[in-house]
Write a protein that binds this DNA or RNA. Sequence first.
RNA 1: GCUCCGCUGGUGUAGUCCGGCCAAUCAUAUUGCCCUCUCGAGGCAAUGACGGGGGUUCAAAUCCCCCGCGGAGCACCA
Length: 490
Amino acid sequence: MLEEDEEEEDDSLPELPAADEYDEIVMRFAPNPNGPPTIGSARGIVVNDEYVREYDGRLVLRFDDTDAVNKPPQKEAYVWYEEDAEWLGAEVHETYRASDRLETYYEHGRALIKEEAAYVCDCPGDDFSEKKAAGEACPHRGRNVQENLEAWEAMHDDATDTVLRVKTDIEHKNPALRDWVAFRIVDVETHPHPLTGDEYRVWPMLDFQSAVDDHLLGTTHIIRGKDLRDSEGRQKYVYDAFGWDYPEVLHWGRISVEEYGTLSTSSLAEAIEAGEYEGWDDPRVPTVRALRRRGVQGDALRDALLELGVSESDIEFSMEHVYSANRALVDDSANRYFFVRNPVRVEVEDAPSVVARPPLHPDEDRGEREINVDDEIYLEADDIPDEGGRLRLKSLYNVEVVSRDGDVPVVRHIGDDLSLVREGDVSVVHWLSANDGESVEATLRTPSGDETGVVEAAARDEEGEVVQFERVGFARVETTEPFVAFFAHR
RNA sequence: GCUCCGCUGGUGUAGUCCGGCCAAUCAUAUUGCCCUCUCGAGGCAAUGACGGGGGUUCAAAUCCCCCGCGGAGCACCA
């Protein structure tokens, strides 16, 4: 017994259609592993997973890796999907690869021929398109079962430029549904499949493979992009021929991310190949692994994506939603440090030698850092006011600018009375000690490019952790020698 | 050309199926104030939307029609 009265929690997804007609809800996420999951893939993972959780069903991860020519699968990407799904908090119950299941598709291809619901077509693609547009059958459409079976076998042997078409209605009012291709021959000599090499030369097209798998693997609900809206119409011819019931289908619109534009996995792959990015986890790239590397938490991405629901309208998604959710998640745990970008070495007149003790966290009682200061410090160029201007160096003391011309600007220590800050025009800024060993050179890698500067030596204890560089933003410490951090967001 | 879909503030979303409690929810964003030794966090407040036009109705974001805008498919890609 299944309860579909999962009383809508505040931000839960809309109910699945006809959920009560199924004993168990089975959904699938079916990517082509031609690269790692992107933000768009992540949406597919978390929404399907969320539904499966709400209905206590099963989630199938199925790799639709059937085109080694145009969208070549990447061997590592299979694992990347599993890793990223886990990081997003998704529970995958079963995993399949289409490339493992060719024999199953062949069986169904043959069965379709025997049902007289498919035929082998030798027409050049362009010729067929013309006929299709005119609603005219091609000569091959009249082949009988025996002829089709022989031609089908030939496809596996040595035939070329031959396809198996599903016999629909050549005059169907929607041209997209007219006699579509179910299988084609792939040149596996020049484009071996990463998993099966050149073992199979006949490969199913998405609509056929997906149709067969959705039925065989028990899928009850499918969520797919609007761009695949005609798939249902096409696949129903297969389902009807086999006497199967079609699953429930939801469509959602295209998602484009404001900060990244509409990068497809294929074009990303090209850009990486061309050296524009350093790899799939380059901080400028919209992949799940890049976000993880920058210190974004899986739950933050998950929650932001779940908020989008399953609307059919196209979405212009803003990373601000992710960042906001992430801030809430990491603010309490991230230790604070100073990171000075574009550092300017500044001399401090009348400087006492002191040890500054800024807290590791402003609210949580987690102890403090120690910074030894003598008479030289680093400030951010943009923070230095005009001559006569004053500054509060956070957790240190107050200074006034004596001169800012010349190679080494000079400021003067003017006490450490915190009440100065209340006076108004004095800003509190971060700084670093120029003493040996107190600061180290550092790189902050951001989506808009690298920034160099110096970071507090103590931050070297935070390898792998998310920290907040005060007045700069949250970042994840990637390596400490050299010191490199990946910027997440303010 | 043929099929089909969508349209609520800057962004996302609730409400649309079953018209009234919607002078429209929540979040994000922006701005201001408070608090804070961060431009973070927290508190308070403000800003800002039913694509347009007709119609039906006592009553329309919700129903009908037309228009506009945006998107998708018509691949031997997924």
